[in-house]
Design a protein around this nucleic acid. Structure first.
Lengths: 132, 132
DNA sequence: CAGCATCCAAGCGGATACTG
DNA sequence: CAGTATCCGCTTGGATGCTG
């Protein structure tokens, strides 16, 4: 953030700078994004080829998968292995650092899944209180 | 997901059902969302009033803060204490379950922050290779 | 103060078509 | 096969104005 400017002023000059205000948030968004979580989870088991991964995850468009993989590769979480053969073959796998985040995100995911019942219960209580 | 329909058919009937395909993803998005992370992190230290929290976080609109807090309250992560006084006073704090997620998310955030250097290094390598 | 309702711009994400 | 490029609808999210 440039010196001599308030956060509000900076934000006005450059909309959506909030995302960039905290660099770690961008990285966090990559790994916790809709498809990022699923990609990391899949790669935690083994390496995948592009469309293999696409089928495995299910419901993800080419565009989003490519975008997600590029972000994760650029951040150093995913390794891209392009074999110069015809037809092209590209393998995606986790880097050591990627393996670390993947496990953390996976742990968090598992925790959430394990607490789903409690969450649903809380929701019913919340919605019930509102209905009256 | 209704029986007798493929994922594709369901998706066509109800766009963006991907989000709902996996209930835990919705919960995960609440706690890892742009503002969710910051709210949980703040409440990890102590309870806050609405605009106090707004100032503390900085850069969040009323709308988004209210939305974030409601989602977290409905999921059972945040407790809302509205005192029937004039002017209104509302305190937000973490529930025991909220405290658990907050710590996990906070751990993940800290991990990311600690690895930021590695990420930036990876990015430079990635961008450098592309520039050629 | 704490929030809801409305409006509107920006960008996320899907479908499609095309390339190496 | 593994993408890139383009178009476009819908949601996200900010600004503003109003209520209890």
């Amino acid at each position: 953030m440039p010196a001599g400017l308030t956060a509000a002023e900076t934000r006005q000059m450059q909309p959506n700078v909030n995302r960039a205000e905290c660099p770690s948030r961008l990285v966090l968004e990559h790994v916790t994004s809709r498809w990022g979580v699923l990609v990391l989870a899949a790669l935690l088991e083994r390496s995948y080829r592009f469309s293999e991964l696409r089928r495995q995850i299910g419901g993800v468009s080419e565009k989003m998968l490519a975008q997600t993989l590029q972000a994760l590769e650029r951040d150093g979480f995913v390794r891209r292995d392009a074999k110069p053969v015809i037809p092209p073959r590209v393998d995606y796998s986790l880097t050591p650092m990627g393996h670390e985040v993947a496990e953390q995100v996976w742990t968090l995911t598992r925790w959430v899944e394990g607490r789903l019942d409690d969450v649903f219960e809380a929701r019913e209580a919340y919605d019930g209180a509102r209905a009256s």
